[in-house]
């Protein structure tokens, strides 16, 4: 992997998340029945920041949770090593909620597809929206984001690495290039 350049610093990431938080409030006309659901792993710290920002801005409690989509992946039977399964944590009733899924990068759309299927097993939400820090294109499914931090057109041999304090000890977004093996 050859690192090419840093696309976002911590301050840029937090500005984007702040704007996304405000767009979520605007689009949902407040926080009634709103829930923020971070997708493991890097959607979780991003979701937490958005959740805190919305609660602080509106001065209201907003539901939040964590989604682990591993068991809903469509490529499990093609992987040599099975990925580690973590718990999904949703301790509120999904029915009639407006759920905002949060993830770091929107790429093929397959993670979001898996997340949609998993949420439906919890009940029937009123709506599901998608917030991502980076949209890098190359969709393989008809899925789009409602809230985007930054659109970054990429080549398919490039990799976007979002680093968060919780998972990597720093906040940054890097673009790297896969080196041929």
């Amino acid at each position: 992997m050859k690192i090419k350049s840093k696309i976002m610093e911590k301050v840029d990431i937090f500005r984007s998340l702040k704007r996304i938080s405000h767009e979520i409030i605007e689009k949902n006309k407040g926080t009634e029945n709103l829930a923020i659901l971070g997708i493991r792993r890097r959607g979780v710290p991003l979701g937490e920041i958005i959740h805190k920002e919305i609660e602080a801005e509106e001065k209201k409690k907003v539901a939040s949770g964590i989604l682990d989509i591993t068991l809903y992946r469509d490529d499990l039977s093609t992987l040599a090593d099975k990925p580690k399964v973590n718990s999904t944590e949703i301790d509120w009733n999904v029915n009639d909620m407006n759920i905002v899924l949060v993830d770091d990068v929107l790429y093929t759309g397959r993670t979001i597809r898996a997340a949609l299927d998993e949420i439906m097993d919890y009940g029937r939400p009123r709506s599901i929206q998608v917030a991502v820090l980076i949209d890098r294109g190359h969709r393989e499914l008809p899925i789009m984001a409602d809230y985007v931090g930054k659109i970054i057109p990429t080549k398919s041999n490039e990799v976007i690495e979002v680093k968060t304090d919780e998972t990597d000890g720093e906040w940054a977004v890097w673009i790297a290039e896969k080196t041929k093996k």
């Binding site: 591993t70 068991l71 809903y72 399964v85 944590e89 439906m120 097993d121 919890y122």
Partner: peptide, 21 residues
């Protein structure tokens, strides 16, 4: 990982697609 599977058993729809096929 058993913990994650136990959580599934408390859902309204206690079914995951993991071993389909």
């Amino acid at each position: 990982q058993g913990k994650a599977f136990k959580e599934i058993l408390s859902r309204p729809i206690k079914k995951i697609p993991t071993l389909r096929g």
